[in-house]
Design a binder for these strands. Sequence first.
DNA 1: CTGAAAGCGCTTACAG
DNA 2: CTGAAAGCGCTTACAG
Lengths: 336, 336
Amino acid sequence: MAVTIHDVAREAGVSVSTVSRALSGARRVGPEVAERVHEAARLVGYRHNAVARALRAQRTGVIGMIVPEISNPFFPAIVEAVERTLQESDRELMLCDARLSADVERRRIHALLGRQVDGLLISPVDSQASAEGLREAMRHTPVVQLDRYADQVRLDWVGVDDEAGMAHVVNHVRELGAQRIVLVSAGQQSSSGRDRLDALRRATASAGITECVELLGEFSIEWGESAARQLLAGGELPDALVCGNDEIAVGAIRELRRHGVAIPEQVMITGFDDIFIASYVEPALTTLRQPREAIATEAVRLLDARLADTDLPVRKLALEPELVVRESTVSSAEPE
Amino acid sequence: MAVTIHDVAREAGVSVSTVSRALSGARRVGPEVAERVHEAARLVGYRHNAVARALRAQRTGVIGMIVPEISNPFFPAIVEAVERTLQESDRELMLCDARLSADVERRRIHALLGRQVDGLLISPVDSQASAEGLREAMRHTPVVQLDRYADQVRLDWVGVDDEAGMAHVVNHVRELGAQRIVLVSAGQQSSSGRDRLDALRRATASAGITECVELLGEFSIEWGESAARQLLAGGELPDALVCGNDEIAVGAIRELRRHGVAIPEQVMITGFDDIFIASYVEPALTTLRQPREAIATEAVRLLDARLADTDLPVRKLALEPELVVRESTVSSAEPE
DNA sequence: CTGAAAGCGCTTACAG
DNA sequence: CTGAAAGCGCTTACAG
């Protein structure tokens, strides 16, 4: 029914083996024969069947990717870069959304394994609960974690260097004269929450800041607003609010401005990630720009390395984020 | 090497046919035999091979999806909903980014066809240049367009009802007393640009608005800013700025506020789409909320209908957006 | 209800 | 360089 390699073979007057070789470009075919095969393929309207090829070659050319939540504005840029990178080697991306549930995540892993993906890129939803699914996955295919990671799993990872980032940001506000700093971040459930808090503590300590309050909630605008309300109720405001991510910072900015607090004059505010809206809030947010593009390409590179050699040691790759100074810390900052 | 159905058959002491039937749930298997097969499968660690199944069954269970640009904040929510809908029927999503190029788009179409997708969901990048690729696609697999569409192609489509939306918005500002209205939108290259402009013209005409200037550029924040500058330079401001999408509106808001214009007191502003930042700009933006979830589920439904019956007539499904009133038109609007 | 056999469309040793 | 043959892991008429 479908046009197959056999139709091409008949048309060109050669064997299917020759057609296969000519079409796949494996060079052991006479030049005029190759020409004839290509002509015949065009004539009969032949199209590759990647499924048949995959079954035979034991390689699908499909990479699975699971993100915690596609609608989280952080991931689309990474997905896009991964997809672009894969195209360079004629591979496709099968994308899944874990909907923030380790359970859904595990089911998606199984589905992707069933589809025989050549590798899996994943940002695990939970540092604990994701571990089991990941272990299952790595028994069957190369796996690389990106952005987030799970504990107790020996798996490659590439993501942002929280340590370096927080040091940048703390030094920045320090140089601008901040003495009293409040850290607003998330709890320790996710790897980012924990790592950023640790990084924040070390950064403030090594900057010689002793007066340092911690407000811990979650990575959301709502928590940023609520934390700001706590500060307002507490009386005196700190010099700077260093937030665990941009959403917290955006929430804090909104709430503080509603109460007439001048930013950055009364309080400086910083974020982390540089999501789209960071440059559109008022005042525009000073933050750390995640090297999303690099994270994506490095993730594919790590995967390919493991594809080539299964005995590689586990690699963790932390990429330094870039400090983007905007008006939430420096009122004269050039608008981008 | 891999554990196959044969290993299960040996373990269970039955034929591979029986194993296949028992595992796929085709009920023509004795209950205790089925039990034994499942037990054996567990024992030998059997996993489905979706590739082999797809080759044999001539059905992959994979739906291809091509979006103009994943990082455009409009699409992730749709992608998420599509993926969720597909999961209900154990299908997977193969996602491609056309990078706003009809050329890349055509290559992605070919790749997906080669992978034998069971159907294609696409938001074409260009109303003209996308047509050829789409025609190629529809010769091989069911295709449904969503959000955008191409001209001169007989293909199902599901998207927002621009006509109804613009009528809502124009009536809204009209009721609030706006007489002089400026339309800021995009040109006619894309289907949305054209349709929204048409809808806007009809809406203002039928609302009896005669003083109506049109500023046409593109769907971007930059164009919104630039249009606002033109207005400021032109002297007297209109009562309302009705924008073709949220990004234009956000740009206009920023620029007008920079120049001290009071919104909505001096000028009301409306958008279209209700993207994430619409509720976070100041003042929060009155806009039309796209029924993204419904667009996604209807797109899959249309595809499934066509999968079941190839002779269906072409269907266009326009879904009404919801007017979300915020502070950019009504200063007392409740913050959400 | 169950099994033997054919075959989905390709690739790839193996000969020649 | 080219061809005949086996086989990737399944499903599905066809018999029984």
